[in-house]
């Protein structure tokens, strides 16, 4: 059936129009790009907007620009576009891994990276990649612009640093030379599923590391204790085991419908161990399919 909730719909051509509507309506207006979360939330009564601002006609928000070693991903850019983009494939492997695990083909054709981070659910697959690449979230208000580092973006489950009158215009990530990344996701299914646990790992050179996780804490986070331990050291079996020993200090998982706290705690060890071993292989030029690392098909 159609949505029981009624609202107005506006599809501006210019960002300024969208911003002025957002200023006027505040949280009674929702931004519509892919709609794959938004429509479900309206249908199920979680959101009751007075106005939907469809931003798909605003050209600047559809940019996917590569320059100065920086990729700007406009708010309208879908996961399908990111997966097919050569710059992402070549320079942002960790993000590429993550995008491929999100939803299914039919969802990825509409769903956007920006929409994903605005939902700010704990199991956000794109977050570990953005945290590892230290992405900047570009926000605009009427007459104002600011960039929020992604580590300051997630405040609590489903809550972000975005102000009521602001719109996310895009996300930028900077290439990190000589880096190798991997995103490992554990789901119940080999096919589309929400994450039971997700770990992103980035190795820079051979002695610098970044770790981030999702579905293991109220918000996606970097694992700084593990990074501190690893930084300055070459990857070897001993280091891997020491890193794993620090997992309890990094994550705070819960039991939910998807699995127990105990399994999340335990499986993180396996994920990190296999992830680090896989990154070693990737850095030596081997092809690794991250999905298969955990035993999925």
């Amino acid at each position: 059936m159609s949505l029981a909730h009624e609202f107005a719909y506006y599809k501006p051509l210019r960002l300024e129009e969208a911003l002025s509507l957002k200023q006027q309506y505040g949280n009674k207006a929702n931004i519509l790009a892919g709609g794959t979360d938004l429509i479900v939330n309206i249908r199920e009564g979680v959101l009751k907007p007075d106005l939907l601002i469809d931003i798909k006609r605003i050209k600047e928000l559809s940019q996917l620009n590569w320059g100065n070693d920086t990729l700007f991903i406009g708010s309208n850019v879908t996961f399908a576009e990111l997966i097919e983009n050569e710059v992402v494939q070549k320079n942002f492997v960790l993000l590429h891994d993550a995008c491929k695990t999100i939803g299914s083909t039919g969802i990825r054709a509409r769903a956007t990276l920006t929409g994903n981070i605005c939902s700010a659910v704990p199991s956000l697959d794109s977050a570990p990649a953005l945290l590892c690449y230290e992405a900047m979230i570009h926000c605009a208000g009427t007459g104002s612009k600011r960039e929020i580092p992604v580590r300051e973006w997630f405040l609590s489950p489903r809550k972000t640093a975005l102000q009521e009158d602001e719109i996310v215009t895009g996300i930028s990530i900077k290439r990190i030379p000589d880096s190798y990344g991997i995103y490992i996701k554990l789901g119940r299914y080999s096919g589309e599923d929400l994450a039971q646990a997700g770990w992103g790992i980035l190795m820079i050179g051979d002695k610098q590391y970044r770790f981030a996780h999702c579905a293991l804490s109220p918000i996606p986070k970097r694992a700084y204790h593990i990074e501190d331990l690893c930084n300055g050291n070459s990857l070897n079996a001993d280091l891997i085991e020491k890193a794993i020993a620090l997992i309890p200090s990094e994550i705070n998982p819960i039991t939910d419908i998807r699995c127990t706290q105990k399994y999340r705690m335990y499986i993180s060890e396996i994920m990190l161990r296999r992830g680090l071993m896989a990154i070693q292989k990737r850095s030596s030029g081997k092809y690794i399919e991250p999905r298969k690392l955990m035993g999925d098909v």
């Binding site: 299914y189 096919g191 929400l194 419908i257 998807r258 999925d296 098909v297």
Partner: peptide
């Protein structure tokens, strides 16, 4: 994969194909 899970009040916790999921083509 599947099972129906109820809470202590008899309410089904996974009444959708997101969390009561049936196998996909990859399974």
């Amino acid at each position: 994969y599947e099972d129906m899970r109820f809470n202590e009040k008899g309410k089904l916790l996974n009444p959708n194909l997101t969390d009561y999921k049936i196998p996909t083509a990859k399974d």
